[in-house]
């Protein structure tokens, strides 16, 4: 880590690869779903990257890393509880029906130009989150690296962007 703080990319890549199994073992204590575990691992790696300047080489590395992994696991669990409390997955939302009238408003937007116009109406961070995650199909971690937004912020902004788009579409329909 000391070498990584000085900008040694090879040492940093080796460090991140070596600590990934350790982080995986730490977050597994809080979660059993493999996809969620991997998301927590990636979120922890991103946080390690953001706060790498706070590591003091005169202190042991593992408590520093474990504190970050623990905090990110707790944040993910809280997020999941919040989502499961207030949101219900809607299975039919992505289906297209032969009867055009039965399709949702979102599917009614056919042209790419119209989508682009609507995207321009979104606040910059919401637009960035939606474009990265839904249009460019990046993973949360990749989108976080590209945008500088945290994973939690990306999720919130994507949710808000979809809500704003829904409102805009309803406004156009009227």
């Amino acid at each position: 880590m000391r070498a990584a703080q000085s900008g040694d990319r090879t040492a940093y890549e080796r460090l991140l690869s070596e600590i990934s199994p350790l982080i995986r073992a730490l977050v597994r204590r809080h979660c059993s779903n493999r996809a969620d575990i991997e998301e927590m691992v990636q979120d922890t790696l991103l946080t390690v990257h953001r706060v790498r300047h706070t590591y003091d080489p005169s202190r042991p590395f593992c408590p520093w890393l474990a504190a970050i992994a623990w905090r990110r696991s707790i944040d993910a669990l809280r997020r999941r509880i919040r989502v499961s409390r207030y949101e219900t997955p809607e299975q039919g939302v992505y289906e297209t029906f032969s009867d055009a009238a039965a399709n949702s408003d979102l599917e009614g937007v056919r042209s790419a130009e119209e989508v682009e116009q609507l995207l321009q109406l979104l606040p910059p961070r919401q637009r960035q989150a939606l474009q990265s995650l839904k249009l460019k199909e990046m993973t949360l971690a990749e989108a976080s690296v590209a945008s500088g937004q945290s994973v939690a912020a990306l999720k919130v902004n994507t949710h808000r962007a979809l809500k704003t788009l829904r409102g805009l579409l309803e406004g156009r329909k009227r």
């Binding site: 703080q5 900008g7 990319r9 991140l16 990934s20 991997e38 998301e39 990636q42 300047h53 003091d56």
Partner: peptide, 25 residues
């Protein structure tokens, strides 16, 4: 698949690494 994505994240983070000024005590 997810582990592969983690590997991609590691490579991306390493490629973007810049030296940082260590925080004082």
């Amino acid at each position: 698949m997810a582990a592969v994505q983690t590997e991609r994240v590691i490579v991306t983070l390493a490629s973007q690494l810049q030296p940082v000024r260590r925080l004082r005590s």
